[in-house]
Amino acid sequence: MPHSAAPILKVEHLSYRYPTGQLALRGVSLTVGLNEIVGLVGPNGAGKTTLLLHLNGLLTGTREPAHAPGLPANPAATGRQTTVGGHNVPIEVLGMPVTPANFPEIRRNVGVMFQDPDDQLFCPTVRDDVAFGPLNLEFPRNEVRRRVAEALTAVGLADYEERRPHELSFGEKRRVCLAGVLACEPSLLALDEPSSNLDPRSRRGLIEILKSCRAAQIIASHDLEMIVELCQRVIVLDHGQIQADGPTRDILGNASLMARHGLEVPLSIQYGLPLPPTASSPPSAT
């Protein structure tokens, strides 16, 4: 467990080029603290998914500050020009640099949920799928069973262990994916479009599950209403650069900023609707 002073995630000057040569991320810097829920918004192709794939080392970018001409300076990077512990790795999780030697520990602590649940449910039954992470982390069988049961209860699918993935509805599939990630008991959840394609009731259920999670979260989404409800802080990513980073209401309420980056001010902020009461209270386990 981390000591409370260190941030859970620290990214400094992360740059990444696709194999085709196109720059996907340019000098991205951000930190996520304990229990923080951060929204990551931006238009399609901004680099949100690419950034999430870096957090557990699936992609490995380089550490170089952005100085591409004609682009605005990175507001998040200014004033934080320290090196990470003297090494040249752009990402640190719980104080560990994301390097191949640390991958097992990193991947246990960073749970990534992908956009298409069918990509993540590759086992014959729900139970096997949720158990996949803990089994690969080489926990004893009893511990694996406990984690599977707990994770499935947390997403409200306690009696689904024997079900087969292709029999599930889309919303159920996504919740099983979340259970598979939660079963590793990560300190940081990286969620890619968790609410896309869900009907309103499934979406509501998912938001409540995420509210009750103890882990810090970084949520990439176009569902700005969900971001308003879940996140205290929002990061705007566009053209592979961080364009803004600050309190949710300030950022998402800034109409010109939103318009510049292909976004819209959420209706709940535009019309000053009250937030659901649990949104800003510290998350508690159920």
Partner: peptide, 22 residues
């Protein structure tokens, strides 16, 4: 493409090349 994404999803959950079932 999906195979690549599944591979990424497996790696994220600590895949070490052995398909184990509970």
């Amino acid at each position: 493409n999906r195979a690549e994404r599944i591979h990424a999803a497996m790696m994220s959950r600590g895949w070490r090349g052995r398909m184990e079932l509970l």
